[in-house]
Design a protein around this nucleic acid. Structure first.
Lengths: 248, 248
DNA sequence: CTAAACTGTTTATGATCTAAACAAGGATGT
DNA sequence: ACATCCTTGTTTAGATCATAAACAGTTTAG
């Protein structure tokens, strides 16, 4: 991946790759007439990569490993996908199928946006690698990703906010879900316990340096499970948005 | 990095590495008496890696490249740092030196927390690789990172919120800064323009599928620069927190 | 039925991190 | 003084990646 960046600077590649990658994302592939029937499709490859990532993490998704899933050589995949970057993009799109239908969530903007956030959260939970995948990807969105975005923006239309404000609210909510997923991905159960143990020991030795933190831990701020992080954050944000709406 | 994970499962390594890494972060290294004087220190190595990452991005920070900066071989670094993971952790700590003094920002919790967010934002701006670095790291915080956390929690103490609530507010604000930095890192200027061009072309062809998005773009939601994303998001969040405080 | 187009394989290159064996430096204890 | 032995830095080597290039086999269109 790292050294893939340099060849990608190549003029020919850049000029051809970009539309190729996009055509792939939008499923606009014209199938060939001449040679042998393709035994795979970009979508099937992406799907295999997704199940692999779900089971064993994104690190184990290598061209070799994915190809092995089909009993072919790694290079065979390059007949269907320009490179690994594009494969990861396809994985993201695959997982974001089923753009959310928010009409069932109620009629108000708040209920709908909240539902949107929860759906997105569920996707992150189901596919923990999604975070790393979207962090590494080129910023080209496929139709499914755009559909999610569209759904959120649609929910905000009845608010009377300006287009710019609606966009910012969208970014805010999407970012909140994302950053929460990040924190969740970092802290698996075991590591969290280990972290608490080590950190509290170190804090004991340096408690004068971190008074507020020491106090917070003593008060159980880190172990309490009363508050659901997603709902708490969402409630604050949406309260704030509501204030903005009222003020206008 | 990928294959480093497997050897790391080794019992001996895990038992020794973890405290080693932590000792490193906390600067508790006992210097040897016998052999030749070390020509480097973990800190100097980390500093070189930081300037390298600032200038050319985190991808170019390889053991080889960093070692070259000192005119030594790559393996020499392993006398000072257990592995690349730990080096990245040290880079993060190096950049988070200077924990923020928020007392100058005013006396209210809101002014202080807002100042905290802006300081953190500035760090992300100065070191764009910080995001990727903290995403890849083990979740072990060094003293500088804890100091930042302490500062934010201290700002929240006068609010009368519960410890759990204060912690959640901290996570919310920190996450907002982070996710904004993420968006900023993805979209450099050129790519943003390119994205707009391509996406709007695709949207034209599929405008029926993404009505809200199409409308938002037409209304200039993506190109307007009236709203500062950081302040906008922060204002909403802190308004929401204020409501929570008032309600109690 | 030949030529073109397409698929999949083998082979090879250059990059990465890091383990292992080894040579040289230098303080400590005799 | 000097032998010991820990420490530093180098060289060599292995494993895994992504992917380029050349090649062999397959199918269909003319």
């Amino acid at each position: 991946m790292a050294r893939a960046a340099k060849p990608r600077e190549n003029k020919d590649k850049k000029a051809r790759d970009l539309p190729t990658g996009i055509a792939l994302l939008w499923g606009e592939q014209d199938q060939p007439a001449r040679g042998p029937k393709p035994s795979l499709t970009p979508q099937r490859i992406a799907q295999a990569a997704v199940t692999l990532a779900d089971a064993e993490g994104l690190e184990t998704v290598s061209m070799n490993r994915v190809a092995a899933e089909f009993g072919v050589s790694a290079m065979a995949l390059y007949r269907y996908v320009p490179g690994k970057t594009e494969l990861v993009e396809l994985m993201v799109e695959a997982v974001l199928a089923e753009p959310p239908d928010l009409s069932a969530a109620g009629s108000g903007w708040r209920a709908r946006l909240s539902a949107w956030a929860h759906r997105q959260w569920a996707v992150y939970q189901a596919h923990p690698w999604l975070l790393a995948a979207t962090a590494m990807r080129r910023q080209i969105m496929g139709p499914h990703q755009l559909a999610w975005m569209d759904a959120a923006l649609a929910a905000l239309e009845p608010t009377g906010l300006t287009a710019g404000q609606r966009h910012q609210v969208f970014l805010l909510v999407a970012g909140q879900v994302r950053s929460l997923a990040q924190q969740r991905a970092d802290f698996d159960e075991d590591r969290n316990r280990e972290w608490g143990r080590l950190t509290s020991e170190l804090l004991n030795r340096h408690s004068d340096r971190f008074p507020a933190l020491t106090k917070a831990i003593a008060d159980g701020a880190f172990t309490s499970t009363e508050l659901d992080p997603l709902d708490f954050g969402l409630d604050r944000i949406l309260d704030g948005v509501q204030m903005l709406i009222d003020r206008a």
